[in-house]
Design a protein around this nucleic acid. Sequence first.
DNA 1: CCTGGTTTGTTGTATGGATGAACTTATGCG
DNA 2: CGCATAAGTTCATCCATACAACAAACCAGG
Lengths: 407, 407
Amino acid sequence: MRAVDPARQASLRRHNLGLVLRHVVDAPVAPSRADIAAATGLTRATVSALVDRLVAARLVAELPPVAAQRAGRPAVPLRAASGTVLAVGLEVNVDYLGARVLDLAGEVVAERVEHDDFRGSDPAEVLRRLDALGSELVAPHEADGATVVGSALALPGLVDRVTGPLRVAPNLGWRDVDVVGLLGRDAAHAPWLGNEANLAARAEARARRLAPDDGASSFVYVSGEVGIGAAIVLDGAIFPGRHGWSGEVGHTVLDMDAADSTAPVSAARGHRPGTLEAYAGQDAILARAGLPADASVEDLRRSADAGDARTLEALEVAGRALGVALANVVNVVDVEQVVLGGTHAVLVEHLREPLERELARGVISAPWSPVAVDVARAGPFPALSGAALSRLHAVVEDPSTWGPLAD
Amino acid sequence: MRAVDPARQASLRRHNLGLVLRHVVDAPVAPSRADIAAATGLTRATVSALVDRLVAARLVAELPPVAAQRAGRPAVPLRAASGTVLAVGLEVNVDYLGARVLDLAGEVVAERVEHDDFRGSDPAEVLRRLDALGSELVAPHEADGATVVGSALALPGLVDRVTGPLRVAPNLGWRDVDVVGLLGRDAAHAPWLGNEANLAARAEARARRLAPDDGASSFVYVSGEVGIGAAIVLDGAIFPGRHGWSGEVGHTVLDMDAADSTAPVSAARGHRPGTLEAYAGQDAILARAGLPADASVEDLRRSADAGDARTLEALEVAGRALGVALANVVNVVDVEQVVLGGTHAVLVEHLREPLERELARGVISAPWSPVAVDVARAGPFPALSGAALSRLHAVVEDPSTWGPLAD
DNA sequence: CCTGGTTTGTTGTATGGATGAACTTATGCG
DNA sequence: CGCATAAGTTCATCCATACAACAAACCAGG
């Protein structure tokens, strides 16, 4: 295995094919061949040749020419083909399971989420159910001639590489699960595996790229579901780390002495004391607020909105802990923004003040480049979209791996 | 400014020129043209053409053919040219200042380090002195026909991009220093600026690449000089973050409550209480050990070797704090190794046990991929080498930017 | 010492993708 | 209706690499 491949003639086409397709997929409005040429620096002739290939491969579609306001031959707008090339995003989380099918244009073609309680569930059974769900969603579109380029499965735990196994998902109670094996698929059709926070962050990065009002492209995405996960996004790209285990922020130690104590592990779920989850995890907040352990985030929010003193105090503590932990993260990876997703997004009004205070105080570079706090924009169940996007991304990055173009 | 450049014919040559040069520079033994062809996948004809260009540009030198043991025409060994293409590494730190000149082969061509106390020094004066030192070291080699491709300056603080300004260097007492302006050079000849830990880590990464016995290529490098800096290395490449401010681990909060207290800032140098530097910074350790504030690391080590109880206790605390802080870092960036440099390397025997204990306990992925602790191998004043290497690296990565090849 | 085998490095010719200029197509405008 | 304008296409040219044949430099063995 060599570090870098040599550049041949064919590398030019691969590179430029990807460049052109990325432009079509990422453009806010459908660009013409001439637009792409101007934006990429390629000549119109070259762009035309490449676009023709992409159209033949059904990755790009031509829209009917729209009569422009100005003089000259009207342009042919190009957009990512919809409905022809699909990817499936799957997710198993603590209290739901779902599948979402996206096409290359990023449109949701089909979707289903089923709520249930998967704590301590049997992996084999759950995965069978998920697999059936995915197949069911995809079947009608495959019958229509669409092609599925791949699927990815988001899990709330540590996945070893994209082929698995799943090492541990604490809140599901799963350990060392050979997901791909249990699904009984051959390697080509097995889903890729990924961490829920990492994949959700991918959806968030896309949402921000499409709405570039103030969307910083480098941020820490915090995914507060039952545990607290995070992901790091740099210039719009997920930072996976060596094994795909980056962003495990829930176990950040914020109180060395408490963490060192041999005291019985706190409350319900067995957080190590002194860690972020023991301050800002959903059950930790509920416990401190004096609410029942099975209360929802909305209950928590209502209680806070109503001005309940214990709840407000619990959220103040959570916000402060989150601020300290994220300040540590920002000091290490140097990003410009914190994006709150999941449960923390719901509670943002009560978390923001202590969070921003601690960020301003703890981030050493804050005086020159303040860290903004924002709420996620990727919509509900972002990991479903992120999982599907991860497989579409592979096609967009290097279209020549996609069958019809590998001539 | 577009995100990605289009690939033209010339891009092929740029890419392959870099590929070939990297091979020559990184190879443990001088490779022949045929070796490079086999290793890169290019043909011998292409490699020959590229090597000829590199030789003409004085980046690569041919060694006299050595009679091989086997049959066939003997190979012409190639190595990075020595003495023709130079880069200068500069550094100002708390108690020394220095310059080191490297050639493309990575050999030290000239070097000088002057010990002094630069706390609260005048930036203009210090930089003049450093500039003079650099020029003095370089002059004789330029007279011999060598070319200086650039210089870089390592500083123990926050540098805003490579062109400055220096935002803050707490231990020097410098704030908002326009380093390039003070040196009065035009932009082309001004040194690039970098953080001391980041540049030292670059030297460390190279040292490990050349000695690939067990050298993990992804690690956190901890640079304990007077403050505690760190840098993240992924697959041999420095991870700079958005502004080059990654790895600021010294201000990691390890005790939320202590950090929140409004108590007068601790002891001598003004660490925020509850942060890593307040446990594992050199002066914090000295204070806890009951040693004078101006004692050296060697004094500390001797005291520990002699079995002094307070010193051992102070080092136990420091090791534990370092372990907790680095566990947090590893959880976020997912690297496989911790490399101790600077003062912490000297104390490794006394730090290792608590450090490894906390890493094993705090790193969530440790059961599947334990985090090894190792000592730096880059030799004394690694930031000097790293700074010079950073400029040589630019030439190696893209030789076609180098004058003689830009035809 | 010469001949055959072997590996290195070089010298052609062929290939394929991008370029750039000229051309065709399709519109708006006076 | 003719002209200006812009989009998309055609075609000759360029250029870095591949491929194959060749020259160079060594070893071995009779």
